[in-house]
Design a protein around this nucleic acid. Structure first.
Lengths: 300, 300
DNA sequence: CAAAGCGGTGCAAAAAATGCATCGCTACGC
DNA sequence: GCGTAGCGATGCATTTTTTGCACCGCTTTG
């Protein structure tokens, strides 16, 4: 609320006791703040601060005004709350179809962040592959889909896309973990743990290795990304995953390294909904948050 | 208050119904006003106006905000008043919504008595029926309401209530004027001058005569209490009024007699303000004086 | 008695608000 | 059915306001 900034300033001066200190909190110069205060006092019709040699103190008029400011803020917050209520942001249910990669870190984090602000919004998260996810949108079983390299996208309206390179996942003790960069052909010399063939990462890897004239021969093929990570963690070979499914901080015993872009270019993670559909408020707002989170992660 | 200008603009757009008209009132260009509104909506976090082909209308969020704006303004006015008090100046403005009965004697007397002590306090008096009066409080168009038998009283916080019997009003020469006490059925034998059906006195009389199995058939029905009194003064029938609207001393040519309590029990005259509101100093002080005056009259 | 901290102010630069011209749209009158 | 009038929105040049910087005078403090 830009037009209420002066109130913040008054409170800052009040609580810090001097214009100079308050100026730091407010991120403006003392002179600017000083003139804002003076300007306000002129409009208001009376001084609200006593000028002491050591700083500023509210005078009785200022005390009265401060009370008004607080009352006013509180009432504005109430209005905001009521507006939020009637726009439906506060309550609601969001149904999400997503790739497995989103399950361990990304979605739990985003959902709990969202629910910290709107505790009355509930969620359904269904794991779906790239084809099923779109089907879920069409049948209205999901509001949002968050999938890696979706299959046809006829009914899929993209809200946001973010590029995801393919990461090799291995034990920190693995010979390749010490290398600067990682080529696909190096990986092929070791035991591979691959997701099943319906997954986007697998498709990308198959294409890339075909270009090398090689064939992928996994020691373990699974439809559980958890399995991939854990098997790799035991030092048993190399797994693959996209960044959004990994959390470097959480696993110091593991190494996550991007495969050289010229070998495997990676793919796109798409957030979208059913084409032409107007989303419920809660779903739309959550989608906005997810877009922000994906952008930040993409830049980091 | 320059920083609250945006509120004026919002109200201007609300009351004129279009940005272009409001722009004239505000002495600003339509484009500038348009962008102020848009900017505010962005800060506020939601639209507050519906854009119609013919102009702008507040949406529900806007209605909520409008109420906040009015509350906020009034509270600021109260603070101003209190600050003025601090500096020893007794200034201020009191806005009153009242029933017609208060106009001829009661309010003029009380207001001039108050202004004898505080000549810098000014007044606005609006005649409102029982429903409109409450509406005025809600919209902050009035500080105080003084009404007979208010309708619902949801937002009405009572400061004082005083009982008012229903009085018959007639020429001193009227046959009934010589009686000791007056029964309703006696009145019904004569020509009746009645206030219109939205008035409390009329409602009470209708209920009472229904209990007698009679129907009121006025020869004159009017929404002017002055008309009632003057018509009765000419000897043309019996009018009705509550004591606060009468002044026995002023009209020796007329007779005012209470209807027997068992026939018409009378009603309550309420002084009140908007529920939960802190009144400006001047209004509060005037209210105190009115409470005193009503108590005295009630006892006399 | 010097140093540190305070609010206040002149002036140039930066930022915001405004006015003007104009667009696209919809309802209304002929 | 079509033109017109009224509406909100917007790009751009201009004006107004706000801000930052440097510095003043003052009072307290060690």
């Amino acid at each position: 609320m830009r037009h209420l900034l002066i109130y913040d300033m008054i409170e800052a001066v009040h609580s810090s006791g001097s214009i100079r200190k308050a100026a730091e909190d407010t991120n403006i110069t003392a002179s600017a703040l000083n003139r804002r205060i003076q300007g306000f006092e002129e409009e208001f019709g009376s001084e609200i601060f006593e000028r002491l040699p050591r700083g500023m103190r509210l005078n009785p008029a200022g005390e009265l005004l401060l009370h008004h400011i607080r009352l006013q803020r509180q009432d504005l917050a109430r209005v905001h709350g009521q507006v939020a209520d009637l726009s439906g942001i506060r309550r609601g249910h969001v149904k999400i179809a997503c790739s497995q990669a989103l399950l361990p870190y990304f979605l739990p984090r985003e959902i709990s962040k969202y629910r910290a602000e709107f505790p009355d919004v509930t969620f359904t998260v269904n794991v779906r592959d790239r084809i099923q996810a779109e089907r879920d949108l069409v049948s209205f079983d999901s509001d949002l889909a968050l999938v890696f390299e979706p299959a046809h996208m006829v009914d899929f309206e993209v809200l946001h896309a973010v590029h995801q390179p393919v990461m090799a996942v291995m034990s920190a003790a693995h010979p390749l973990a010490r290398q600067e960069s990682l080529r696909l052909r190096d990986c092929l010399e070791y035991d591979l743990v691959l997701p099943a063939s319906q997954f986007g990462v697998r498709v990308l890897l198959e294409q890339a290795s075909a270009r090398l004239g090689r064939k992928l021969e996994p020691v373990l093929e699974t439809d559980s990304f958890d399995m991939v990570r854990h098997f790799a963690a035991y030092g048993q070979g190399i797994g693959f995953q996209i960044p959004v499914g990994l959390n470097a901080l959480a696993r110091p015993d593991m190494a996550f390294m991007p495969i050289a872009h010229r070998d495997v270019s990676g793919g796109e993670l798409y957030l979208g909904h059913l084409r032409g559909r107007t989303l419920p408020v809660a779903a739309l707002k959550f989608a906005t948050q997810v877009v922000t989170a994906l952008s930040v992660q993409g830049n980091a």
